[in-house]
Simulated assay, not measured.
Amino acid sequence: MPVIEELIRTEQDGTISFGNYKLSTKSKLQDFEHDGDLYKVKTFYEITKLERNGMFVYESVPGTAVEHFTVSNNGVEFSVEGDKDAQLTIQLEDDTEYEVFVDDAAVGSMMTNMSGKLSVSVELNEEEPVSVKVVRR
């Protein structure tokens, strides 16, 4: 999975892809329109962050490349790649229990905090995307 050279893009299947962990300096793109929402992405080797309509959606430390990011009423699903293991923080429903899957393996049930954030650690190797699926229980 290559990095996203344009920082964020819409895929043919209606999902979005974003992030470039190979950048040495912070880059950002704002006012990217997708399905009536405005997205802003900030990305480089230290962090990748996505906002929708000014609200937090996704963050990884260090930076990552995310493909086919899709949000539904039941959760979120995407593929992520990076050159180092990463801590992902995802915005979901407040105080809700979710089942987390990494490469189709259940890694456990987790509760979001009062602000709806859920954090997941993923082991990453460059050029080897990892699928992440978070489903409401």
Rank of each mutant, 00 (worst) to 15 (best):
M1G: 02
P2K: 11
V3H: 03
I4S: 04
E5D: 04
E6M: 11
G14C: 01
G14V: 03
F18R: 03
F18Q: 01
G19T: 04
Y21N: 04
L23M: 00
S27P: 05
K28F: 13
D31F: 13
G36P: 08
G36A: 09
Y39K: 02
K40Y: 12
K42E: 15
K42P: 03
T48G: 11
R52G: 01
G54M: 00
G54H: 01
M55Q: 14
M55D: 15
E59Y: 05
S60L: 11
P62L: 00
G63F: 00
T64V: 15
T64L: 15
V66A: 02
V66R: 00
E67V: 14
E67I: 10
H68F: 10
T70Q: 13
V71W: 01
N73K: 07
G75E: 06
V76L: 05
E77M: 13
F78V: 01
S79Y: 14
D83W: 00
D85T: 15
L92S: 01
D94H: 10
D95F: 04
E97W: 14
V100Q: 06
V102W: 03
A106V: 10
S109E: 09
M110N: 12
N113H: 08
N113V: 00
G116L: 05
K117R: 04
S119N: 02
V120R: 07
V120Y: 07
V120N: 05
E123K: 12
L124F: 14
L124G: 06
N125S: 15
E126M: 07
E127P: 06
P129I: 13
